[in-house]
Computed example of a mutant assay.
Amino acid sequence: MKKVLLGIFVLIFLALSGWMGYYFYKKSNTDPVVYKTEEPVTTDVVKKTVATGSIVPRKEVEVKSQVSGVVEELYVEAGEIVKKGQLLAKIRIVPNIVNVNNAENGVQTAKINYDEAKRELERYEDLYQQKVISEQEYRKYKADFNLKREALQSAENNLQLVREGASKRSGQASNLVYSTIDGMLLDVPIKAGSSIIERNNFNEGTTIATVADMRSLIFEGKIDESEVGKLKENMDLLLTIGAIEGRVFNAKLEYIAPKGVSEEGSIKFPIRAQVLLSENDFIRAGYSANADIVLDKREKVLTVKESMLSFEKDDTFVEVETAPQVFERRAVKTGLSDGINIEVVSGLQKTEKVKVPEAAATQKI
């Protein structure tokens, strides 16, 4: 039994010895590690944050009707350029029976009062001509006649407004809809024959058209609370619009909301920026856009990749190649970083090579 155990032990020892010999042989023939190096680059470093939002007109209005009825004529369509005061639509009023009845009763009452005042005035005018009554008393009846005449005209105008939407006295028609500003028609949501509701104190009314000044556009977006403290008015923005490839538009930050809003569990602050367009630029309203807000910038400075740095307490180090694959650990002073490249203020020359950590390749020497 002892001889068997001894034999097993010897076999195990020989196997381990052979494996160890093979391991050290392979390790001695392994190619040495060659570290990759890169030279510092002179470039611009821009620190920025991103806000998402959309492009909207600064001035956009919804034109509504002053009367209810049916659209009889529609003179414009979306995309047209209109001027302030230009006729957009004509409304055919469908009169309310109760309102018409009340207006007709008002006319009849005013007519009776007018006829009575007229007879009184004629009678007292004869007495005044005969010097029976004084001028003061005559003027009282004449003033009463004038008031009754004005009341009759007002009742007739009211009846005409209820029936037709226009009055003879004013010469204006409330059933005609005009543009209130110069601009482009973004939308005309109604069609000829559509029923509409008037604008009043109790409802917004039916929108006849949406008009906007497309020469003055703004970017409206939101930015996270962790970044809003770094923003200031008049900062430069670079707008990237998904629908317009290969173009970057400039903008100027003009508003930062003093109060944030809760959105998907985080607090975000609305911002607004003026879009700076050239004469030939045209951007459609409603485009989604991303705004790169430039927080700080360094132009033509010496930079290395931030991944090349190592940190120890408050010091920053890089490994500089002093001879082929021989590196020296050196402290450097850094400046602005954009998350990829970082400015090197001192401690490194442009011609020196810096070790790229964990970017190694193997080769046989």
Rank of each mutant, 00 (worst) to 15 (best):
I283K: 00
P258T: 07
K59H: 06
E254C: 03
F317G: 04
T334P: 09
E204I: 14
E122M: 11
P357K: 03
G242R: 12
K2W: 08
D115C: 08
P357S: 04
E80W: 04
P258N: 04
G339L: 09
G171Y: 08
E38T: 10
Y114S: 04
N96A: 02
S170E: 15
Y128V: 06
D115E: 15
Q136D: 10
A192K: 15
K131R: 09
K230Y: 15
A192N: 12
G183N: 07
K131V: 05
R58L: 10
F13C: 12
S28L: 12
N234Y: 15
E279G: 07
L302A: 01
A323R: 08
V188Q: 02
E220R: 15
R298T: 05
K59E: 13
I91N: 00
E62N: 07
Y124V: 13
Q66R: 06
S216H: 14
I340N: 06
E358S: 12
V228P: 07
S167P: 07
V98I: 09
E122C: 07
V41K: 03
Y141A: 00
I133Q: 01
Y255P: 04
A273V: 08
Y178R: 06
V70A: 00
S174G: 09
A78H: 02
S54D: 10
N102S: 05
E204D: 15
I223Y: 05
R272I: 13
I181G: 03
G260T: 07
S226W: 13
R119I: 14
V41H: 02
K364E: 15
R215T: 15
G53D: 06
